[in-house]
């Protein structure tokens, strides 16, 4: 029973840690499926978190925080889109720029506004997305196995978390079952064909970049005003890059992306839990080994030893209309 309890605790914390990954990963999926490589997810998560916390601090409203977070990440996305689509820039360079600007600007402005080394004041509960008790959670409390699972794993999360889990099937549906999705995938594989059919490559790619901005804004908002109750500099702490790894690991497909993010979130929770504990048989596990595992797994996959991760064919390549 104790092991079961520990499992529930780790899994519940894994879900919470996976939420920003799910948003960032699916955001990256929309962008890269349209042909725009995005290594700037990390920076966008950070600016989203900053803008959401800043607006929540000033207005006291979580919803305005969400609006602000999403607006700012959409703007960041559009800068990346303008550079990648209209200026035909190197998309990696543009993504790196987004990360650096985000890192510097959030810490600088945060410090100028609130002092405290760039940290916002602690936000009250009313300015946060709080956990929701699903109906029946209390009645099932005493039921063995199902009770704890329902009460602590399924119920008791905030709105953004539930949205994250709906997002993956929604992405799947739009991407594979609608005309827009078909065109968006086509523009990431063979933009010339899309162009020949009389559909705007530029429009579709801006569409992908825009959706990316909206989704990653939710992830950033979650970081500062749902998971935590404040913003602090560098608080995205590499999550954008783990999301990128998850995207590669899931081979740019939405449902595997959800599963991979959950796996990586679970590993993160496990590494926190195992800090300083000594396991039977294995002995003490260096936390760093578990922390590095998502990256190592992704590299092994990229190397083609377990399956092969093939990105959308036209991703990263600016489209030049034939003259």
């Amino acid at each position: 029973m104790e092991a079961f309890d520990a499992f529930i605790v780790i899994f519940a914390s894994g879900i919470r840690l996976a939420v920003p990954l799910i948003f960032a990963c699916l955001a990256g999926l929309w962008s890269e499926r349209s042909g725009i490589v995005d290594v700037g997810l990390e920076g966008k998560l950070l600016t989203g978190a900053f803008a959401a916390a800043a607006a929540a601090t000033f207005t006291g409203s979580a919803w305005l925080g969400l609006c602000s977070g999403v607006t700012v990440t959409v703007l960041m996305s559009l800068i990346h889109g303008y550079a990648s689509i209209d200026q035909r820039a190197n998309q990696i360079v543009s993504g790196v720029a987004v990360n650096m600007v985000a890192d510097g600007a959030t810490a600088l402005i945060g410090n100028a506004w609130w002092g405290q080394g760039g940290r916002t004041p602690q936000l009250p509960d009313s300015a946060l997305f709080n956990s929701i008790q699903l109906p029946g959670a209390y009645t099932l409390h005493d039921t063995p196995i199902i009770g704890p699972i329902y009460e602590r794993l399924i119920s008791g999360h905030d709105l953004i978390t539930y949205l994250a889990f709906l997002l993956a099937p929604a992405t799947y549906w739009v991407l594979y079952k609608t005309r827009f999705g078909l065109r968006l995938r086509a523009v990431g594989e063979n933009p010339a064909a899309v162009d020949t059919a009389g559909i705007s490559v530029r429009g579709l790619r801006y569409g992908g970049v825009l959706i990316c901005g909206v989704l990653v804004g939710f992830g950033g908002t979650y970081l500062s005003i749902a998971q935590a109750a404040y913003f602090q500099p560098h608080m995205s702490a590499g999550k954008g890059f783990i999301a990128l790894a998850a995207l590669v690991f899931a081979k740019w497909r939405p449902l595997p992306a959800l599963a991979t993010c959950l796996l990586f979130g679970f590993l993160d929770a496990l590494s926190i839990r195992l800090q300083g504990t000594i396991l039977p048989v294995i002995g003490s596990v260096p936390v760093q080994a578990i922390q590095a595992l998502p990256y190592i797994l992704t590299v092994i996959l990229l190397a083609g030893f377990i399956g092969k991760a093939i990105p959308p064919k036209a991703s990263g390549i600016p489209y030049v209309k034939e003259r």
């Binding site: 800068i79 720029a97 510097g104 600007a105 500099p233």
Partner: peptide, 12 residues
């Protein structure tokens, strides 16, 4: 952090 921002803008 100002310098990191300038650096990012230079890359941009």
């Amino acid at each position: 952090d100002m310098i990191v921002l300038i650096q990012g803008l230079v890359v941009l």
